[in-house]
Design a binder for these strands. Structure first.
Lengths: 249, 249
DNA sequence: TACCAATATGTTATTTTGACATAATAAGGG
DNA sequence: CCCTTATTATGTCAAAATAACATATTGGTA
């Protein structure tokens, strides 16, 4: 979007009625983080997202935005909800807050948004602002400020969807570095679920999934007893993602 | 849509880039049925669906379509996927098949579709065609013909989503009449899952959910041993729908 | 070398699951 | 009226999964 102001007229190469928002999550210092953007000349933050090109699949647009904001490709990205209310947020308030950036005549008349969440490796992501923002940063999900649009709600729904997914699919492949320890994995699960887990039961359950491989290596350098490193067995992991629904024999 | 031909120009009171499709399911004679429409003057069938009004929430549009096609209100309706590919189907083939009904200049340039599935009581639904179709009928999901657009695929995705949901949420409230027998419920589950279940284990599991109430009444009239009637306990059922995610203590 | 803080691990009682077979009964036909 | 028949209702047991629980180990640090 090279224009100076946002333009969603029908001549635009972007769809004018449909946008998407990405809840990009990572895990760092035992906390779940979400990537937010600060709009130019303001203290207002929002989720990454934006318009979809007319010749671009919606999933492809989500991947493009993820790539633009983090530099990452080929990441776990999951459609989780369509936000389709007519008045999703206070339009006047937004116009006021962003009046130096948007042309009211060309602002969305109404936009439906497809929500995606992505799970990325904190160390590999390179937060990068977009043309309308001047800062791109990780925020602890526990400490998110009031965001623009309906983005606080979108994050809430994403986190609930993630918790639900966690209960019947493995998670962690993209959120953790290639090699990680079981306590790290456990803290990730605890951060997502928002509650503590028993390390003995957690280990038993995770190992019984058959998707983890224990390496000979241990993590050194941290104080105290050095933990084993593990790695996901990619094939078995993918398989679990696909099966993952059997409740009745 | 009172026009003679479909018109999706921008002056239209409908969104031009976003539509929805409804996979409306019912259960009859031990089979899962899906509601399909036959287009005027053709033998071509498709899912119910259509455009969204500019001043209408997407969920509201889904409810409206459900109401228009079945007469039913206040039904379980679940967003399950956004179909956002650029070329979702062979546009030329569709234009050819429906040339007497659509104006090629005003046909969608590109439309993203939100998929919903609904579960309705077969006996209560009144299948009703829309302005472009002349027949609305239930089809056995096992015997669906080649449909217009990408609707065969949409049904496949809906059924998978339903199976997944079934594995962690109760289902049946809207699919069955108020009073039903356990074998009926079991056959519903079998139809959705596509496999047989053990009646003893099924009964144990369903009753342990605490959402069923056994009535004093039994079903009479069918030959052979008369089964007990059950009813869902609405409050507990709704509660289960909401909780329904705990895999880790 | 003693201490500390995090890691690794095992047992048991309880609950849930899956596999399996038989008795009861309402309708219909002779 | 009784017998047949198709369907429903139900119980047991072994195996697996779960939840609750405590202690020994060890790498680094002081």
């Amino acid at each position: 979007m090279p224009q100076e102001k946002i333009n969603h007229s029908n001549a635009s190469p972007y769809l004018s009625e449909l946008t998407l928002d990405c809840v990009i999550l990572s895990f760092h210092e035992d906390c779940l983080k979400v990537l937010l953007l600060r709009w130019k000349g303001t203290q207002e933050w929002s989720l990454p997202g934006g318009p979809i090109r007319r010749n671009e699949a919606v999933d492809a647009a989500a991947n493009r935005i993820l790539k633009e904001r983090t530099g990452l490709d080929d990441i776990f990205l999951q459609q989780f909800h369509v936000f389709g209310e007519v008045e999703r947020y206070n339009r006047e308030e937004i116009k006021y807050k962003l009046k130096h950036l948007i042309d009211p005549d060309k602002w969305y008349e109404r936009a439906v948004s497809v929500g995606y969440y992505a799970l990325v490796d904190h160390a590999k992501a390179m937060p990068t602002p977009d043309p309308f923002t001047e800062q791109c940063a990780w925020w602890d999900v526990q400490q998110i400020p009031a965001l623009l649009f309906d983005h606080n709600r979108i994050i809430q729904v994403a986190r609930q969807a993630l918790r639900t997914q966690l209960s019947w699919q493995p998670i962690g492949y993209n959120l953790l570095p290639e090699k990680f320890t079981l306590p790290e994995l456990q803290r990730l699960y605890e951060a997502i679920l928002g509650k503590g887990l028993d390390p003995r039961n957690f280990q038993r359950k995770m190992l019984s999934l058959g998707i983890l491989e224990r390496l000979a290596e241990r993590r050194r350098g941290g104080a105290f007893k050095s933990p084993y490193l593990y790695r996901f067995k990619k094939e078995e992991y993918e398989l679990k993602l696909k099966e993952s629904n059997l409740f009745f024999s």
